[in-house]
Protein backbone atom coordinates (compact mmCIF):
# COMPACT_ATOMS: atom_id res chain seq x y z
CA UNK A 1 0.00 0.00 0.00
CA UNK A 2 1.18 3.45 -0.79
CA UNK A 3 2.04 5.19 2.44
CA UNK A 4 2.80 8.69 1.37
CA UNK A 5 2.78 11.76 3.54
CA UNK A 6 0.64 14.08 1.46
CA UNK A 7 -0.17 16.61 4.16
CA UNK A 8 2.71 18.66 5.50
CA UNK A 9 0.42 21.02 7.39
CA UNK A 10 -1.89 19.30 9.89
CA UNK A 11 -5.35 18.30 8.72
CA UNK A 12 -7.98 19.15 11.35
CA UNK A 13 -11.02 16.96 11.82
CA UNK A 14 -13.54 17.91 14.48
CA UNK A 15 -16.02 15.22 15.49
CA UNK A 16 -19.00 16.45 17.51
CA UNK A 17 -22.20 14.89 18.76
CA UNK A 18 -24.22 13.97 21.77
CA UNK A 19 -23.15 11.57 24.48
CA UNK A 20 -23.85 7.96 23.50
CA UNK A 21 -23.72 8.48 19.73
CA UNK A 22 -20.17 7.24 19.20
CA UNK A 23 -18.12 10.41 18.76
CA UNK A 24 -15.13 8.88 20.50
CA UNK A 25 -15.36 5.70 18.40
CA UNK A 26 -15.27 7.73 15.19
CA UNK A 27 -12.25 9.72 16.30
CA UNK A 28 -10.49 6.56 17.46
CA UNK A 29 -10.95 4.91 14.07
CA UNK A 30 -9.72 8.01 12.28
CA UNK A 31 -6.73 8.51 14.57
CA UNK A 32 -5.67 4.87 14.25
CA UNK A 33 -5.84 4.94 10.47
CA UNK A 34 -3.77 8.12 10.32
CA UNK A 35 -1.21 6.77 12.75
CA UNK A 36 -0.83 3.50 10.85
CA UNK A 37 -0.42 5.49 7.68
CA UNK A 38 2.61 7.18 9.18
CA UNK A 39 1.20 10.54 10.19
CA UNK A 40 1.76 12.12 13.52
CA UNK A 41 -1.66 12.28 15.22
CA UNK A 42 -2.86 14.29 18.15
CA UNK A 43 -6.33 13.83 19.51
CA UNK A 44 -8.10 15.46 22.41
CA UNK A 45 -11.66 15.19 23.56
CA UNK A 46 -14.18 16.29 26.12
CA UNK A 47 -16.47 13.57 27.30
CA UNK A 48 -17.75 12.09 30.53
CA UNK A 49 -19.27 15.24 31.97
CA UNK A 50 -21.72 15.12 29.12
CA UNK A 51 -23.03 11.67 30.07
CA UNK A 52 -25.74 10.48 27.72
CA UNK A 53 -27.50 13.34 26.02
CA UNK A 54 -24.92 16.07 26.58
CA UNK A 55 -22.49 17.57 24.12
CA UNK A 56 -19.29 15.68 23.24
CA UNK A 57 -16.51 16.80 20.96
CA UNK A 58 -13.22 15.33 19.82
CA UNK A 59 -10.35 17.04 17.99
CA UNK A 60 -8.27 14.89 15.63
CA UNK A 61 -5.23 16.48 14.00
CA UNK A 62 -2.84 14.63 11.72
CA UNK A 63 0.08 15.70 9.55
CA UNK A 64 3.82 15.44 9.20
CA UNK A 65 4.30 17.31 12.47
CA UNK A 66 1.52 18.29 14.85
CA UNK A 67 2.28 20.51 17.80
CA UNK A 68 -0.98 21.29 19.53
CA UNK A 69 -3.72 18.76 20.27
CA UNK A 70 -6.53 21.29 19.89
CA UNK A 71 -7.79 22.90 16.71
CA UNK A 72 -7.76 26.71 16.57
CA UNK A 73 -11.09 28.36 15.83
CA UNK A 74 -11.59 28.88 12.14
CA UNK A 75 -9.22 26.14 10.98
CA UNK A 76 -11.37 23.01 10.98
CA UNK A 77 -10.95 21.19 7.66
CA UNK A 78 -13.69 18.62 8.23
CA UNK A 79 -16.50 19.01 10.74
CA UNK A 80 -18.25 15.69 11.34
CA UNK A 81 -21.43 16.17 13.37
CA UNK A 82 -23.60 13.36 14.59
CA UNK A 83 -26.39 15.67 15.71
CA UNK A 84 -27.82 18.76 14.07
CA UNK A 85 -27.74 21.21 17.00
CA UNK A 86 -24.17 20.21 17.81
CA UNK A 87 -23.28 20.79 14.15
CA UNK A 88 -24.65 24.33 14.39
CA UNK A 89 -22.74 24.91 17.60
CA UNK A 90 -19.41 24.22 15.87
CA UNK A 91 -20.13 25.42 12.32
CA UNK A 92 -18.25 28.69 12.73
CA UNK A 93 -15.07 26.76 13.59
CA UNK A 94 -14.81 25.60 9.96
CA UNK A 95 -12.00 27.15 7.88
CA UNK A 96 -13.78 29.89 5.91
CA UNK A 97 -14.22 29.02 2.26
CA UNK A 98 -12.31 25.73 2.47
CA UNK A 99 -13.68 23.39 5.14
CA UNK A 100 -16.10 20.53 4.68
CA UNK A 101 -19.27 20.16 6.70
CA UNK A 102 -20.82 16.73 7.28
CA UNK A 103 -23.82 16.35 9.53
CA UNK A 104 -26.57 13.99 10.44
CA UNK A 105 -29.94 15.78 10.31
CA UNK A 106 -31.10 13.98 13.43
CA UNK A 107 -32.55 16.24 16.12
CA UNK A 108 -32.00 15.30 19.72
CA UNK A 109 -33.85 17.92 21.73
CA UNK A 110 -31.72 18.80 24.74
CA UNK A 111 -33.52 18.93 28.09
CA UNK A 112 -32.83 22.64 28.55
CA UNK A 113 -34.63 23.37 25.29
CA UNK A 114 -37.84 22.20 26.94
CA UNK A 115 -38.28 25.38 28.94
CA UNK A 116 -42.00 24.91 29.07
CA UNK A 117 -42.63 21.52 30.59
CA UNK A 118 -46.34 21.40 29.97
CA UNK A 119 -47.46 18.53 27.84
CA UNK A 120 -47.60 19.38 24.14
CA UNK A 121 -45.60 22.59 24.52
CA UNK A 122 -43.17 23.54 21.78
CA UNK A 123 -39.51 22.84 22.33
CA UNK A 124 -36.90 25.45 21.61
CA UNK A 125 -34.56 24.07 18.93
CA UNK A 126 -32.40 25.46 16.16
CA UNK A 127 -34.60 26.74 13.35
CA UNK A 128 -32.06 26.87 10.49
CA UNK A 129 -32.74 24.42 7.70
CA UNK A 130 -29.95 22.28 6.31
CA UNK A 131 -29.99 24.27 3.05
CA UNK A 132 -29.31 27.50 4.90
CA UNK A 133 -26.32 26.00 6.67
CA UNK A 134 -24.86 24.29 3.62
CA UNK A 135 -25.04 27.55 1.67
CA UNK A 136 -22.76 29.07 4.29
CA UNK A 137 -19.92 26.55 3.91
CA UNK A 138 -17.66 25.60 1.03
CA UNK A 139 -18.73 21.98 0.85
CA UNK A 140 -21.56 20.59 2.89
CA UNK A 141 -23.39 17.31 3.31
CA UNK A 142 -26.48 16.81 5.40
CA UNK A 143 -27.95 13.35 5.44
CA UNK A 144 -30.37 11.42 7.56
CA UNK A 145 -27.85 8.83 8.71
CA UNK A 146 -29.96 7.69 11.62
CA UNK A 147 -32.79 6.52 9.38
CA UNK A 148 -30.30 4.85 7.06
CA UNK A 149 -28.77 3.00 9.98
CA UNK A 150 -32.17 2.08 11.36
CA UNK A 151 -33.13 0.55 8.04
CA UNK A 152 -29.99 -1.56 8.27
CA UNK A 153 -31.16 -2.83 11.63
CA UNK A 154 -29.12 -0.86 14.15
CA UNK A 155 -29.72 2.82 14.78
CA UNK A 156 -26.44 3.09 16.62
CA UNK A 157 -24.49 2.51 13.39
CA UNK A 158 -25.35 6.06 12.27
CA UNK A 159 -21.85 7.18 13.15
CA UNK A 160 -20.40 4.59 10.76
CA UNK A 161 -22.62 5.90 7.94
CA UNK A 162 -21.09 9.32 8.49
CA UNK A 163 -17.64 7.73 8.67
CA UNK A 164 -18.32 6.30 5.20
CA UNK A 165 -19.07 9.80 3.97
CA UNK A 166 -15.95 11.15 5.69
CA UNK A 167 -13.81 8.45 4.04
CA UNK A 168 -14.59 9.89 0.62
CA UNK A 169 -13.02 13.22 1.59
CA UNK A 170 -9.73 11.70 2.85
CA UNK A 171 -7.08 9.82 0.92
CA UNK A 172 -7.06 6.47 2.77
CA UNK A 173 -8.26 3.37 0.93
CA UNK A 174 -11.53 1.62 1.69
CA UNK A 175 -9.83 -1.54 3.00
CA UNK A 176 -7.96 0.43 5.61
CA UNK A 177 -11.20 1.95 6.86
CA UNK A 178 -13.06 -1.37 6.96
CA UNK A 179 -10.18 -3.00 8.81
CA UNK A 180 -10.10 -0.24 11.43
CA UNK A 181 -13.87 -0.23 11.88
CA UNK A 182 -14.03 -3.97 12.43
CA UNK A 183 -11.36 -3.65 15.10
CA UNK A 184 -13.16 -0.92 17.06
CA UNK A 185 -16.85 -1.79 16.96
CA UNK A 186 -18.29 -4.53 19.20
CA UNK A 187 -17.74 -7.96 17.54
CA UNK A 188 -21.47 -8.66 17.14
CA UNK A 189 -22.07 -5.48 15.17
CA UNK A 190 -19.18 -5.72 12.69
CA UNK A 191 -21.43 -6.74 9.79
CA UNK A 192 -24.01 -4.01 10.26
CA UNK A 193 -21.30 -1.40 10.71
CA UNK A 194 -19.54 -2.42 7.50
CA UNK A 195 -22.88 -2.23 5.67
CA UNK A 196 -23.46 1.20 7.17
CA UNK A 197 -20.01 2.29 6.04
CA UNK A 198 -20.82 1.16 2.48
CA UNK A 199 -24.11 3.08 2.63
CA UNK A 200 -22.27 6.22 3.60
CA UNK A 201 -19.83 5.87 0.70
CA UNK A 202 -22.69 5.09 -1.68
CA UNK A 203 -24.59 8.17 -0.48
CA UNK A 204 -21.56 10.35 -1.28
CA UNK A 205 -21.45 8.95 -4.82
CA UNK A 206 -25.15 9.59 -5.38
CA UNK A 207 -26.65 12.73 -6.78
CA UNK A 208 -29.02 14.14 -4.22
CA UNK A 209 -30.57 17.19 -2.76
CA UNK A 210 -30.28 18.01 0.90
CA UNK A 211 -33.03 16.49 2.99
CA UNK A 212 -35.11 18.38 5.47
CA UNK A 213 -34.28 17.81 9.14
CA UNK A 214 -36.04 14.80 10.56
CA UNK A 215 -37.18 15.04 14.17
CA UNK A 216 -36.74 11.70 15.85
CA UNK A 217 -37.92 12.86 19.23
CA UNK A 218 -41.51 14.00 18.95
CA UNK A 219 -41.70 17.17 20.98
CA UNK A 220 -40.28 17.60 24.44
CA UNK A 221 -39.97 14.50 26.55
CA UNK A 222 -42.42 14.51 29.45
CA UNK A 223 -40.52 15.20 32.63
CA UNK A 224 -40.42 12.14 34.83
CA UNK A 225 -39.77 13.10 38.41
CA UNK A 226 -40.43 9.67 39.79
CA UNK A 227 -43.51 10.22 41.86
CA UNK A 228 -47.06 9.65 40.79
CA UNK A 229 -48.07 12.94 42.40
CA UNK A 230 -46.01 14.71 39.73
CA UNK A 231 -48.09 13.41 36.86
CA UNK A 232 -48.73 16.09 34.29
CA UNK A 233 -52.23 17.17 33.46
CA UNK A 234 -53.71 19.39 30.83
CA UNK A 235 -55.83 21.44 33.18
CA UNK A 236 -54.15 23.40 35.96
CA UNK A 237 -55.64 26.08 38.15
CA UNK A 238 -53.79 27.62 41.06
CA UNK A 239 -55.84 29.27 43.79
CA UNK A 240 -53.90 31.49 46.17
CA UNK A 241 -55.75 32.89 49.17
CA UNK A 242 -54.14 36.31 49.78
CA UNK A 243 -55.80 36.63 53.20
CA UNK A 244 -53.93 33.55 54.44
CA UNK A 245 -50.58 34.19 52.70
CA UNK A 246 -47.89 35.42 55.10
CA UNK A 247 -45.23 36.23 52.44
CA UNK A 248 -42.75 33.58 53.58
CA UNK A 249 -41.37 33.26 50.03
CA UNK A 250 -41.19 29.44 50.15
CA UNK A 251 -43.45 28.90 47.12
CA UNK A 252 -41.55 31.50 45.08
CA UNK A 253 -38.18 29.92 45.75
CA UNK A 254 -39.28 26.29 45.50
CA UNK A 255 -41.32 26.52 42.29
CA UNK A 256 -39.42 24.48 39.68
CA UNK A 257 -40.92 26.59 36.87
CA UNK A 258 -40.22 29.93 38.61
CA UNK A 259 -43.74 31.09 37.83
CA UNK A 260 -44.66 32.56 41.21
CA UNK A 261 -43.67 35.88 42.76
CA UNK A 262 -44.55 38.17 45.62
CA UNK A 263 -46.52 41.19 44.47
CA UNK A 264 -46.27 44.73 45.89
CA UNK A 265 -48.51 43.69 48.79
CA UNK A 266 -46.01 40.85 49.43
CA UNK A 267 -48.63 38.23 48.61
CA UNK A 268 -47.79 35.29 46.39
CA UNK A 269 -49.19 35.54 42.86
CA UNK A 270 -48.91 33.37 39.78
CA UNK A 271 -47.03 35.30 37.10
CA UNK A 272 -47.27 32.90 34.20
CA UNK A 273 -50.22 30.47 34.26
CA UNK A 274 -48.98 28.87 31.03
CA UNK A 275 -45.79 27.68 32.63
CA UNK A 276 -47.44 26.21 35.72
CA UNK A 277 -47.40 22.43 35.39
CA UNK A 278 -49.49 21.75 38.46
CA UNK A 279 -46.71 19.85 40.21
CA UNK A 280 -48.21 20.81 43.60
CA UNK A 281 -44.87 21.60 45.26
CA UNK A 282 -46.11 25.07 46.26
CA UNK A 283 -49.29 23.57 47.64
CA UNK A 284 -47.43 21.02 49.76
CA UNK A 285 -44.87 23.46 51.09
CA UNK A 286 -47.18 26.37 51.83
CA UNK A 287 -47.07 26.59 55.64
CA UNK A 288 -50.12 28.83 55.64
CA UNK A 289 -52.22 26.37 53.59
CA UNK A 290 -53.01 29.29 51.29
CA UNK A 291 -52.32 27.58 47.95
CA UNK A 292 -54.59 25.01 46.34
CA UNK A 293 -53.84 23.38 43.00
CA UNK A 294 -56.77 22.07 41.00
CA UNK A 295 -56.02 19.51 38.36
CA UNK A 296 -59.53 19.03 37.01
CA UNK A 297 -62.15 21.60 35.99
CA UNK A 298 -64.63 19.83 38.29
CA UNK A 299 -62.38 20.34 41.33
CA UNK A 300 -61.87 24.01 40.47
CA UNK A 301 -65.60 24.53 40.10
CA UNK A 302 -66.35 22.74 43.36
CA UNK A 303 -63.78 24.87 45.21
CA UNK A 304 -65.22 28.07 43.75
CA UNK A 305 -68.69 27.11 44.98
CA UNK A 306 -67.76 25.75 48.40
Amino acid sequence: MDKKITHKEPVNVLVVGVGGQGVIMVSKVLATICQEHGYQVKQSEVHGMAKRGGGVFSHVRFGEQVYSPTIPKGSVDVLLALEWAEALRWVNHIRPGEGTFISDTQHIVPPFACRNRKRGAEAGYARETSDQIISRVNKGFALDATTMARELGNERAANTVLLGLLSTTLEFSEDVWCDAISRFVPPKTVDVNLQAFEQGRAWAAMDHGTPEPVVHNDGPTPVVVGREEHEMSDFVQLDINPAWCKSCDICVKMCPERCLKLDDQLKAVLTDPDRCTGCRICEWLCPDLAITVHRTPEAARAAAQG
Partner: peptide, 17 residues
Protein backbone atom coordinates in the same frame (compact mmCIF):
# COMPACT_ATOMS: atom_id res chain seq x y z
CA UNK B 1 -59.99 30.43 62.40
CA UNK B 2 -57.61 31.07 59.53
CA UNK B 3 -55.12 32.59 58.82
CA UNK B 4 -53.43 30.64 61.60
CA UNK B 5 -51.29 32.24 64.28
CA UNK B 6 -47.96 30.70 63.18
CA UNK B 7 -45.13 32.93 62.00
CA UNK B 8 -44.38 33.24 58.27
CA UNK B 9 -42.42 30.23 57.05
CA UNK B 10 -43.06 28.04 60.09
CA UNK B 11 -42.90 24.38 59.09
CA UNK B 12 -45.71 23.37 61.42
CA UNK B 13 -48.34 24.23 58.82
CA UNK B 14 -46.73 21.82 56.36
CA UNK B 15 -46.76 19.08 58.98
CA UNK B 16 -50.45 19.77 59.66
CA UNK B 17 -51.24 19.36 55.97
Amino acid sequence: LFPHFLCPGCGHGIALR
